[in-house]
């Protein structure tokens, strides 16, 4: 990839309880682009995604080797502040998971944890984040209502707003639309297109059409290996590897 890379992985291997889940993954994630990771269930795409903000650290008996850099700094280096790393690399999960709090509090929570106390500043961050996540107009009159009263699609955009509130550089999305209907999905996809102006997005998706629609680069993974990674149009028009071809044309997976 010729674009400047924000994240690179070099020969990354990962084992859960001795079972290998990632096998020598080397790739670079270009800045301000959308990179999609596709592959059959269990191929390691979510595991790889969770490596980028060290979310796998929370799981017992995980062993990781190889190097992952963010802005040229090794994220596993001694002294790395994992909280700061997760601030820089935010995450949106498959199922919308708002806190059982108000819409406002959901977005203000992160900045508060990071030390923002001034109400006016919090108000500004909340509005900006909700605007960025394309949900402001829908919730501006009910910021104090419970986030759990929002629809699934709105909850997911609220979760994106919550991620944006701590000003990340990278947003990881793990199947962000799989629990949403087509209209809510379209809204999230439009949002991803807008987000890449300011952020780098890495999205894991089962839906190949979605990967083709939203991403600039696509990586295809199989049995823990990154089989092929390249521009999305190349991967979906003429993949170089037969495995990729067979997967995206539905011959397996």
């Amino acid at each position: 990839m010729s674009e400047s890379a924000i994240i690179t992985t070099n020969d990354v291997n990962l084992w859960y309880n001795g079972k290998r889940a990632l096998d020598s993954v080397s790739m670079s994630i270009p800045k301000n682009k959308v990179t999609a990771l596709i592959g059959p269930s269990g191929c390691g795409k979510s595991t790889l995604l969770r490596c980028f903000n060290r979310l796998n650290d929370l799981i017992d008996h995980v062993k990781i080797t190889g190097e992952i850099t963010l802005d040229d700094e090794n994220i596993h280096a001694l002294g790395t502040d994992v909280v700061m790393l997760r601030k820089k690399v935010g995450m949106v999960f498959q199922k919308p998971n708002p806190f059982p709090k108000s819409i406002y509090e959901n977005v203000a929570y992160g900045p508060r944890v990071h030390g923002v106390k001034d109400k006016a500043e919090l108000d500004k961050i909340v509005e900006q984040s909700l605007r960025h996540a394309a949900i402001w107009d829908e919730v501006k009159d009910r910021l104090n209502d419970s986030a759990l009263g929002l629809s699934g699609g709105q909850q997911q955009r609220l979760c994106i707003a919550r991620t944006l509130a701590v000003e990340p550089e990278v947003i990881l999305m793990d199947e962000p639309c799989s629990a949403l209907d087509p209209i809510a999905t379209a809204k999230i996809e439009n949002l991803i297109e807008l987000l890449k102006q300011d952020y780098t997005v890495i999205i894991v998706t089962h839906n190949m059409q979605q990967a083709a629609r939203v991403s600039d680069y696509t990586g295809f993974m199989y049995l823990g290996k990154l089989i092929e990674c390249g521009k999305t149009v190349q991967i979906f028009e003429h993949p170089k590897e037969e495995l990729t071809e067979n997967y995206i044309t539905g011959r397996f997976g």
Binding site: M208, F236, E237, H238, E245, T249
Partner: peptide
Amino acid sequence: NQPMAKDMR
């Protein structure tokens, strides 16, 4: 079917 790769070609 939104065909891809060889299927699309």
